[in-house]
Design a protein around this nucleic acid. Sequence first.
DNA 1: CGCCGACTTGAAGAATTTCAAGGTGTGTGG
DNA 2: CCACACACCTTGAAATTCTTCAAGTCGGCG
Lengths: 226, 226
Amino acid sequence: MSYCDTCVIRNQAICSALSTEELSALNGIGRRRELEPGESLMWEGDDSLLVANVIDGVLKLSTGTEDGREQIVGVVYPSDFIGRPFGATSSQNVTALTNARVCIFSRSDFDAFASQHPALEHKLLQRTLSELDRTRRWMLLLGRKNAEEKLATFLLEMADRLGTEANGTISFDLPFSRQQVGDVLGLTIETVSRQITRLKKEGVIDLPSRRAVTILDRQSLEDRAG
Amino acid sequence: MSYCDTCVIRNQAICSALSTEELSALNGIGRRRELEPGESLMWEGDDSLLVANVIDGVLKLSTGTEDGREQIVGVVYPSDFIGRPFGATSSQNVTALTNARVCIFSRSDFDAFASQHPALEHKLLQRTLSELDRTRRWMLLLGRKNAEEKLATFLLEMADRLGTEANGTISFDLPFSRQQVGDVLGLTIETVSRQITRLKKEGVIDLPSRRAVTILDRQSLEDRAG
DNA sequence: CGCCGACTTGAAGAATTTCAAGGTGTGTGG
DNA sequence: CCACACACCTTGAAATTCTTCAAGTCGGCG
């Protein structure tokens, strides 16, 4: 009996490339770990000692300057892969935003296993290529969009990832604090707050609680997203 | 006699994963193409019909908004790989900045070939992972650095990529116009110009001609890079 | 009830953009 | 060979956006 047998992301994660026997071999070198919000799994600049699959929860990838400015460079969800295989150092911090469960492997074990399983590497390549595309599209937001466009784009992305629809509106709970939204968008917390408040005042969104968002007028958000 | 036999990037590009026979098979599905500055090889949103290796020259990857704002999301040099294998659409424009030579493959041919050559996919995976790391680090610059830090970081990167050292100074020719530097850094052309002029006035760099840069005080640039 | 952290709001300040000229260098045609 | 046009770059001044600094407010929890 292996963890993988009951794994909910078994068919979405890169593991889906493997046969039952191969999976059981992979299971042998992996182990589960739970993370609490704020807990980190890797640190920027550290040796790349492990890689992992996200089973449940949301985590952020971030980098920072010496003087404490931070930029969130990626957000990962269940079935996403984290860590840097085939490389000596981690180039980002990986930190849980919510309670999270991950399936971790020592990097050397994973590298060896992957090198012998081309189908797994193929899945990982596809994932990495998509992630690179998504990351590059985000650069347009960071470099060229203003605060309103940034917030609108961000809320639409969150809605697509996390939203549930009910009678024409889309609702979700943000896995981010206001400061973290700022760290994703390259804005200060105050600018984020003002833009969100403004969207609410103008009837585009509703804010049932601090972390909850309801999109009332998706079209308007799209118009504002640039 | 194949193109590959005399190819100068033969041992740096992903082709280095292949044996002589495999290389000759790859050679059979590829062809050379020359590009002039400003000429594009792919367009954002178009079907992904080809992929390529850069043999010579410098090319930019860019995305834009509908209203004409542009963001350069990557710069590629000899031996780099371009295009989107295993995906339906290109998510960036690819445009030559200098005269360039590339070795192009139809995407479907390349996908089929790669799927049968795990060592090639492995190289491509490593390259893509490094590129993703580099791209994410650049996001810190776009989201959190000010104009001076952006220019200093940019000039240091150019120096590392293109610079030649001579009695304590590093010189190179920028493959970018001022506008394009702005498109890389998320700044206007005027801000770029002012920052560059300021670095010159303060004796950190010299500008022998419009495109030429000499770094006189690397340490000062590093201090300003944040 | 009151404290604390997270968030909001306001006012002032700074950085960057925008708008508008003014240079500079290169190539072309007279 | 000079003059001119054109593209690219620089510079200045005003406008705008975003940040910074400084109070408030809100909601949960001891």
